[in-house]
Design a protein around this nucleic acid. Structure first.
Lengths: 140, 140
DNA sequence: ACTCGTAATGCAAAAGATTCTCATCTCTCT
DNA sequence: AGAGAGATGAGAATCTTTTGCATTACGAGT
């Protein structure tokens, strides 16, 4: 049950929080901005404020329920955290996001952090490229 | 000469551009925000507008003179591009930035992009961690 | 060096994203 | 059901970045 996740995070189980979590679970695409979440909920007839969406997403991030990414474009996107870490490939033409996970890279990162006297806490790897999707604009 | 770099980029050699480029060349730390550049120039007695700093940095980025990074914190930072690509380790406590470059990771990234049908254009790898600097706040 | 056309600048206003304030409302616990 | 802590919504505020426009500064040609 969703509610348990929220409760375990030390947060009250309120309607906005449940709705946002439900939406993230059902969300396609998986990477959405706060604005996206807000609009999607409004369209579903929910009554919610944008400030709440930001607050809740930040709380979820702190609680480890969602991950925040700073892709290009001046606004953050969030995705539900399903336990397994992964990195991203973003198409610079159509914005499509794919996920991947590579043990070799993960391992090297830890080593590199250690070599520099850092204790790795997190990392962000984003590959930008042009995808070969036929529906991708900017192709000819 | 600085001027040549600017001219080669197809831009007029104007005072603001020269000043910004000079500052980036002398800048410690190497990773500065537009606001940083603006304030540093003001402190040096230069007369410049913030809008110009943003415009020029964006032009320099397009021309390949500087690289823009979206670290955490809601604002972009820029660094002079010295030809050699590298990635970053950022201390989440004191904000210190170190650079590194790892051939193994670079290679894997290209392979991964290809595996997903992407033609890699660029990438951004940032490791977040806690550094062991004695002057780093948040240590005890 | 001088002039002119174009591109660049500075300022202020605008736009976009995110956070804050605060009065009101809603969980949770009893 | 009632009390208290915590959460919400609306709008104001803040911060970063972009844009419009009148003025100014390059630099190609003389």
């Amino acid at each position: 049950m969703d509610n348990q996740e929220i409760r375990k995070a030390g947060l009250k189980v309120t309607l906005p929080r449940v709705k946002i979590l439900e939406l993230l679970e059902a969300s396609v695409p998986r990477h959405v901005s706060a604005e996206d979440v807000y609009k999607m909920l409004l369209e579903k007839g929910e009554e919610i404020g944008l400030a709440t969406v930001y607050r809740v997403l930040t709380q979820f991030e702190t609680a480890g329920l969602v991950t925040r990414h700073n892709f290009e474009g001046g606004h953050a996107v969030f995705e539900l955290d399903r336990g397994e870490h992964h990195d991203h490939i973003v198409c610079v033409l159509c914005g499509k996001v794919e996920e991947f996970m590579d043990a070799t890279i993960e391992e090297r990162q830890k080593e590199i952090a250690a070599e520099h006297g850092f204790e790795m806490e997190d990392h962000s790897l984003i590959i930008y490229g042009r995808c070969n999707n036929t529906s991708c604009p900017g192709r000819e």
